[in-house]
Design a protein around this nucleic acid. Structure first.
Lengths: 192, 192
DNA sequence: ACCATATGAGACATCTTTGTCTCAGCGCGG
DNA sequence: CCGCGCTGAGACAAAGATGTCTCATATGGT
């Protein structure tokens, strides 16, 4: 039956296409629909059957990224324990999405009236709430606003993903470098 | 005489065009040559007379950005005094170029065999040397590599410029937020 | 006043990407 | 074995950006 085929084949294809596109666009943000199709191992016609156009593809990538980020937010259990540990868990969990996040971070400035805006602000709010919780608990300094710490986290994730893909830093250090810089900064400290 | 006209008018025009283009492309990185021309208040034909094409324009913007960064590096006197003060001076001096830096940071990944590559690596080296000096002096922690600290600085400058242009953080806090996060991190400290 | 030069406006061809369409092939279930 | 549906390949027009060209105009120096 058609809907069974749709459920079995098309779904996995769609997901595979999305992940291929994410991997490609992470490296080459100006990749053509044709390049995206080739990267996924399908023809441009089939790509067009799944995603009406480039906008629809980017929109689907946004939805995927939002979903993965929310999964990471859930897995990081932001409300549990010290906020700085929650930040470390968050960075660790969100690492797989960092590349896609970096792509969308620069791409979606075009779509000001973004259809996925609600999804992004929901994520922003959860992250900002974590920093706010840390400030309220006296863990985090209060001269850096939660909004800025959230932006900085995105920026560091993007820089980190890019630096790793360029071979400037080792992939295994990704989590440590981002979390430690965001939390502790560059200055050496006496206390443990 | 023609060379006098060239020296008086064309030079200032070229600089004005470059700065207009920088301001526009900072906000809309996919702006058309026509939009760039209109933003500079000139026609597309004149823009083409000054810059052979879009590549030439971006190349000139790179040269401008490199020059401004090096001026900032000089003004920050990276070799004087404590490294953390030098970092603060650097962030303050380089702030005007942050927007353009953010644009080129994402744009120039296309030009892998970049003609300006030498200029960028020269800047990278000077910044990395500053972090290395701070590490050698015991000011900075050594588990974060100079290369990563350099990348992180770029990422924070880009995030900061973008966040300011989006109105998410106040422009007057730009220097403080970037320098303090980079140096001290989010975690509150007991010592002074 | 005259002339050189830069400019603005616009036409024009070209290139790239995109979106749509058709058609033939193939797998898979009935 | 047959037919349905998905796919790949390719043709096609449309749209957008780019680069080049011409020509009329204005500006500025001589």
């Amino acid at each position: 039956m058609s809907h069974m085929v749709y459920g079995c084949l098309m779904a996995v294809d769609r997901d595979h296409v999305l992940r291929s596109a994410a991997a490609l666009l992470t490296r080459k943000s100006t990749a053509t629909m044709d390049e995206v199709a080739k990267a996924a191992g399908i023809s441009r016609a089939t790509l067009h059957r799944h995603f009406a156009g480039r906008d629809a593809l980017v929109l689907a990538l946004e939805a995927l990224c939002i979903a993965e980020c929310e999964t990471a937010l859930d897995a990081a259990r932001l409300d549990d324990g010290p906020a700085h540990d929650a930040v470390r868990r968050l960075v660790r969990e969100i690492e797989p999405a960092a590349g896609l996040l970096a792509f969308l971070y620069t791409e979606s400035q075009l779509f000001e009236g973004d259809a996925q805006n609600k999804g992004w602000t929901r994520i922003d709010d959860r992250v900002a709430a974590l920093f706010r919780r840390g400030q309220a608990a006296g863990e985090f300094r209060i001269d850096l606003t939660p909004a800025w710490l959230t932006e900085a986290l995105y920026g560091l994730l993007a820089s980190g993903a890019w630096a790793v893909s360029e071979g400037r830093v080792a992939g295994k250090d990704f989590t440590h470098m981002i979390a430690e810089l965001l939390l502790g900064g560059a200055v050496r400290r006496e206390e443990s």
